Amino acid sequence: MNRAVALRIAACGIMGLGAALLIAALLLTTYTKSKITKIPLDLDATLVSDGTGTAFDPASLAGERFEINKNVPLTQQQQISVETPSNADVVTLQVGTTLRRTDKQQDNGLLLAIVDTVTVDRKTAEAVSSESNPGGAVQKPRTIEDDQPPTNIALPHEGLAYRFPFNTEKQTYPVFDPIAQKAFDANYDGEEDVNGLTTYRFTQNIGYDADGKLVEPVKYASLYDDDEDSQVTARAAMWGLPGDPDEQITMTRYYAAQRTFWVDPVSGTIVKTEEHANHYYAREALKPEVTFVDYTVTSNEQTVESQVASARSERDRIGLWGRILPITFTAVGLVALVGGALLGSFSLRAESALIDPGLDEADHGFFDTQGIKVPGAEAKTEKLPAQRPGRPPDRPV
């Protein structure tokens, strides 16, 4: 194999590599990026929010009157994990949420507890339903003595659940509330820096208006068979009402809330939340009489740091496959194509020179003298006859 053929093969290989890199860059910006912008299947997070509020004292159930305490320290905890069915298109999130009084020990401080399960689209974070899966469920409450496996109550979900979509936009999104058992609008409210991360802020009102006024509270949906916690009948003295202390008074439990979500717009991760919720008993919806718990909690610093780190990790992954690698592959591919073309052109000239040197004489050497006439280089020289040996030169007579 001569040098010209070897150069031609190398040129074809380099140009092929360049074309492959350009195709890879195109695929990364379209097909591959769409495959990686999905909610991870290995989610496992514990989110903690702290705050204070006015809260019922569970120990007073055995007393003469329901005790309501103010300025109570409270902690809300969410444990998020992945359950089946989860696959390339959907992920099922199980979220256990509790609200506790931290000034009480163990179950004496437990105020709220709910285990919510929802299947969401991995790209849009919207709840999805099928014949075998209604899109969500809540776990039926159990007593401490109950040793039977937990059972779920089907609860179809709609809207977003626990995440926002990838490439979140500055618009209104419906976000599902498992306590109210329906979705409510979360409205875009501006940008804000959270631990160095630019986030979109969304606000959601359930039963409140934008000014925080109670306008349309939600009747609490009990998870017990007998609705024992949605309607309570007790003596007037227990409620702390004037009049006949033994009169039986029935009150209905209502619920209203205001939430603020700080969302990473690239990954849809909720990096911080603030929640004001009010559970109360009343005979008329807009006239609260007895507070069960009225509180405000905000994500603690450890939770915010963890969620910001998670959002940055997803951003880096998306940026690597969706921007850095495509740009790199495109640049290297173009260089390879140009380099291969130049090498191929050189190999053709080299082969031409081997076949007929005259065809390539215009490109010969750096010291080619064509076009530069050197005087004397073409001058004719006179050819002198050679003398024969042994014969003296002729002398003139």
Results as ranks from 00 to 15, higher is better:
Pro326Ile: 15
Ser310Ala: 12
Val304Gln: 05
Phe329Ser: 05
Val332Thr: 13
Val308Cys: 02
Arg317Thr: 15
Glu289Leu: 07
Asp294His: 06
Asn278Ile: 10
Tyr295Phe: 15
Ser313Tyr: 02
Val308Lys: 07
Ala282Cys: 10
Arg283His: 09
Tyr280Ala: 08
Ile324Lys: 00
Arg323Phe: 15
His279Asn: 11
Arg283Ile: 07
Asn278Thr: 13
Val304Ala: 04
Val297Pro: 04
Gly319Ile: 03
Asn300Asp: 13
Gln302Asn: 12
Asn300Trp: 01
Thr291Pro: 14
Ala282Gly: 06
Ala285Val: 07
Glu301Cys: 08
Leu286Ile: 10
Gly322Arg: 03
Tyr295Lys: 05
Arg283Tyr: 05
Ala285Gly: 05
His276Arg: 06
Gln307Asp: 07
Pro326Cys: 07
Thr330Leu: 14
Phe329Trp: 04
Gln302Leu: 05
Arg312Trp: 01
Asn278His: 12
Ala336Arg: 02
Leu325Asp: 03
Val293Met: 11
Glu284Thr: 15
Pro288Met: 10
Ile327Gln: 01
Asn300Lys: 01
Glu314Val: 13
Leu286Met: 07
Ser310Gln: 13
Glu305Ala: 15
Val297Phe: 03
Leu320Met: 10
Val290His: 11
Thr298Ala: 09
Thr291Val: 08
Ile327Asp: 02
Ser299Phe: 03
Thr298Gly: 04
Asn300Glu: 09
Ile327Asn: 00
Ser306Leu: 05
Tyr295Gln: 07
Ala285Asn: 03
Arg312Tyr: 01
Thr330Trp: 04
Glu284Ala: 12
Glu289Pro: 11
Ala336Asn: 06
Glu289Ile: 06
Ala336Cys: 14
Tyr281Arg: 08
Glu301Pro: 08
Ala331Ser: 08
Arg315Leu: 07
Phe292Leu: 06
Glu314Gly: 11
Tyr280Asn: 03
Ala277Asp: 08
Val297His: 02
Ala311Thr: 11
Ala309Ser: 10
Pro288Thr: 05
Leu325Ala: 12
Thr291Glu: 14
His279Cys: 13
Leu320Phe: 06
Glu305Asn: 14
Tyr280His: 04
Arg283Ser: 14
Val335Ile: 09
Phe292Lys: 02
Val335Ala: 15
Leu325His: 02
Leu286Glu: 01
Gln302Val: 09
Lys287Phe: 05
Thr330Ala: 15
Leu286Asp: 04
Asn300Ile: 06
Gly319Tyr: 01
Phe329Asp: 06
Gly322Thr: 12
Pro326Val: 15
Arg323Cys: 13
Glu284Asp: 13
Tyr295Gly: 09
